[in-house]
Design a protein around this nucleic acid. Structure first.
Lengths: 137, 137
DNA sequence: GATCTTTACCTTGCATACAAGGTAAAATTG
DNA sequence: CAATTTTACCTTGTATGCAAGGTAAAGATC
């Protein structure tokens, strides 16, 4: 009988919890949640993505995405437009407010990563990321 | 500008997502969620814990715990009793149904761990757990 | 071109998660 | 022992997250 303290699911859940908490703190001044920030990051790569494409990039299903998108439209971070060529597709574009915030957000993200990985050597950081990517595919 | 694909928060979130999904699959036959199972595991260690003590062990705040406890009482996994010595404290006890399920649940948990860490060497498994424990404290 | 299937998105229902604020019992203090 | 503080728990509001089922547009098939 293994203790939950040695369970990889538990360890992942709690490391994730702490990481979310740190990022949340750094994003507080922007009024953004970690997930909303991630949502925007996908649009930094390519503005005007469809809802489905955003979901594929940040690995989130469209049911969850719908709520996040609604809140971000309401808060003025993005706007949503119907695709003129395909009536099914909803495209998402960054607002001016979002573009202005990018640099500050990038710094907050950078600081979060540094703070989280503070105690690790370079080798450990790289290995940690590899293990996180490789676990169960 | 770092891509979110190299962001440790993102990597943790998605590894966590996959781990939850695998465990969820293994628990489906029991009608338990991963968190409900974790809740019960704390009582395997020590039956009759208070709500607050459970929260400290599995690192969850009491607001979240309240809902989980309600659902588990309704489903007949645990019962809740007022502490006779301290009117503020609510204690939680495993039901017979829960005790009967323990062995099967332990196997499901074991299988989940094996499946998740399948591709890793023993050294990698140990290092991975250490890194997860050590990140940000 | 009418039918069928696929795709893209949406809505609903359920289960975490936490912040913030409330209540009552216990412990502390004067 | 009365007043204050602390503790334990609860409730509410907001934000993920997924399963399941619905709708409408696009594509495929005949």
């Amino acid at each position: 009988m293994i203790s939950f303290r040695d369970n990889i699911v538990f360890l992942l859940a709690k490391a994730h919890q702490r990481a979310q908490s740190v990022l949340k703190g750094h994003l507080q001044t922007f009024g953004l949640t970690p997930m909303q920030c991630l949502f925007m990051e996908s649009l930094w790569e390519e503005d005007g993505l469809s809802v489905g494409e955003i979901g594929r990039r940040i690995l989130l299903d469209t049911a969850t995405l719908a709520g996040i998108l609604d809140r971000m439209v309401t808060a003025g971070w993005v706007r949503r437009e119907a695709d003129p060529l395909d009536g099914r597709v909803a495209r998402v574009y960054l607002s001016e407010k979002a573009r202005t915030a990018i640099d500050g957000l990038a710094i907050a993200i950078e600081q979060t990563n540094n703070e989280l990985l503070n105690g690790f050597s370079l080798e450990e950081k790289l290995l940690f990321k590899r293990l996180l990517r490789d676990i169960k595919d």
